[in-house]
Design a protein around this nucleic acid. Structure first.
Lengths: 146, 146
DNA sequence: AGCTTCCTGTCGATCTCATCCACGGCCAGA
DNA sequence: TCTGGCCGTGGATGAGATCGACAGGAAGCT
């Protein structure tokens, strides 16, 4: 995981469709060598997969919110129950003012309300506090610079 | 933006490297037709770019935190100042208990502390409250269903 | 030092796949 | 019925991914 690897990751984050030839040229390697490095980055799990970045608003989900969830019991398999709710994009266990933090995207605030009801129906949930996003400055991938 | 488009987006989110032929087969179209649809999805901005999904932990940033930021004045060009801090992955203006919500990834909690100091140095910031992530259940892309 | 092994790179051949073009069917409106 | 726009198909072609064989260099061992 040297400087070249980091550069490769950064270039691929920007455009995963680039040819290996141009990739190699950009980092001062042959195309095949660049290909080999990328292959290993995948193998090691640094690169999980190649995907497309979609605009949630264009998909009809302009509403973003973060939800702080408090629970009474220890929520064992809560993860799976939350995963079943498609509007939830992220779910974290946190240290601080609540037990869980969720990131939610919906089409309308009405839909957001419905999602909150679904969250409430998950066993162990006692209360939620919702933070609505008014404007997103930016959302970007992890910077590979160590 | 019909059912086929949504299916294409979902397939590409899972693996953007698929051949257009197999893509077409999966949705009951020819490769060329699938290609044309994807081209238009890009043109319309539904698909912003093709990228790689990297594991932040493998990149040496296992610490994730959310930071609630409060500010006194109206923070006009705060966005650019925050963008200059590489550890900040997301920045949102929110309605609720604070003005801004940031998502931060660092190598250590010590680095997190340094980022917080940098945030404090941004003009207008009066206080921060940090929520540290203990465990991430999941982080996934937007579901293209409706 | 001499040898082995592993890692990383180059070069060239092959074969898949993206890309482009011409054509055909379908539908709405005049 | 005619016409134009839209959306699809199928085929040709050229670019590029992919694979194998080989070379140089570093590290470890006898």
């Amino acid at each position: 995981m040297d400087e070249i690897d980091r550069k490769l990751v950064r270039l691929l984050q920007d455009d995963a469709g680039r040819s290996y030839a141009s990739l190699g040229q950009a980092v001062g390697l042959s195309g095949a060598a660049a290909h080999e490095r990328v292959r290993k980055l995948r193998e090691r799990g640094v690169i999980r997969r190649t995907t497309v970045d979609v605009d949630p608003a264009e998909l009809g989900r302009p509403v973003t919110a973060y939800v702080l969830v408090d629970g009474s019991t220890w929520m064992g398999d809560t993860a799976e129950r939350l995963r079943d709710i498609p509007a939830i994009e992220e779910a974290h266990v946190i240290a601080g003012p609540a037990s869980l933090l969720l990131k939610v995207r919906t089409a309308t605030t009405r839909d957001l309300q419905r999602v909150l009801r679904q969250v409430f129906e998950v066993e162990g949930v006692t209360s939620t506090q919702t933070v609505v996003v008014l404007e997103t400055f930016f959302e970007r991938p992890s910077d590979p610079e160590l």
